[in-house]
Design a protein around this nucleic acid. Structure first.
Lengths: 196, 196
DNA sequence: AGCGAATTATACCGGTCAGTAGGATAGTTG
DNA sequence: CAACTATCCTACTGACCGGTATAATTCGCT
């Protein structure tokens, strides 16, 4: 009962995601969002809560829709293959021509005012989840024998994530897909091999 | 002639640099700056121009004071040594305990509103200068014979800068100096050797 | 038709944004 | 002392910030 919504919340959330991805959390105003989403302020607050809630929902959508490749990548047969798929898939997402360049998890907030500290910490935590997932995969690989016993999965996961973060900043700075893939080429050169 | 300034502009600029480094350009308000610098708004505008001018001056100071190691690093005898000194020196700057973690060139602005677009582009341009300086060093190394003829200095410079940017984000996320140095360890593993 | 519920749009809230006007103050120069 | 000048502080500007009160509108239901 009651009046029907005149906009599609899912579609509106996609638009909000685009704006946040381009301008970051702090650089995006409610007016920026309502203008792009084609709805009024009260509609936004009724449908999504406040700005912080909306950002978190956009972040969820982003991970669900754009970072979903990561789960599949981690299931590749070898650790090396997993990492390479991870980095190449990420390079493609970062430079997807239908979206603003870069990653919401980085563009969202790297440094910000105290008012946005909660969002910054949320992003740090989410990035850490990914790093830990990769570490777990490398530990599994070490058990399986396709990752050297004397190498530290925690250190390697941090290294791979750092490469990804660097590519994210480069993408936001205008780097092309090909340039990022060439970064991946070099990043994989030092990958450790199990002694025969 | 006229009243003397009651604050040291250089000291005040150091403080402004700290604030910008912690909160970024857009996340820093004039009030944040005047509070930290211990001066009033009109004093700030009289001494440094507007917010954008002040940021650029802080950026100049940052490069002069914290990134000065890079020039020396590039003069190391070999390309490999130059790159390793570059990355290790950068890791130390990023985690210098007397300053907010991370790099002003990254924390300053990765994604922002249109109002700060000029600053974002300035940072991109300055990062590109560093990348080009490294490329030139690698090209010189290729002439000197301590970098392989079949490797592309442009690609390698982009790779090294990407590593640095990734470390900068990790530092801003709380990574320790030791963790960043371990990233450097792995980043250097794939460094190309000249065929004997 | 008429009631209640949900969404709509307008118009506003106090607070903060970057930037400045204008008068008071302190210093140099005659 | 008086004149000049540069810096100081208080107080302000208009615009924008995130968020909301209010009332008109539009639907399902009886």
């Amino acid at each position: 009962m009651g009046r029907h919504r005149e906009f599609d919340p899912d579609e509106a959330l996609h638009v909000a995601l685009q704006v946040f991805r381009r301008q970051g959390y702090e650089g995006t105003s409610i007016s920026d969002l309502t203008d792009a989403m084609g709805i009024t302020r009260p509609s936004l607050y009724a449908a999504f809560g406040n700005k912080e809630d909306l950002f978190r929902q956009a972040l969820d959508l982003y991970e669900r829709q754009h970072l979903c490749f990561a789960h599949a990548a981690l299931q590749a047969p070898t650790a090396q293959e997993s990492v390479e798929r991870l980095l190449r898939g990420y390079a493609d997402v970062l430079t997807d021509p239908t979206n603003p360049p870069g990653c919401l998890g980085v563009n969202g907030a790297v440094a910000c005012s105290e008012a946005s500290e909660a969002i910054r910490e949320e992003l740090i935590a989410r990035r850490m989840v990914n790093e830990n997932n990769l570490r777990d995969r490398l530990e599994q690989a070490r058990s399986n024998g396709d990752f050297p016993k004397n190498e530290d999965p925690t250190d390697w996961a941090r290294y791979v994530v750092s490469i990804g973060l660097g590519m994210a900043v480069k993408a936001a700075s205008g780097a092309s897909r090909e340039e990022l893939h060439r970064v991946v080429d070099f990043a994989m050169r030092g990958w450790p091999t199990v002694p025969a």
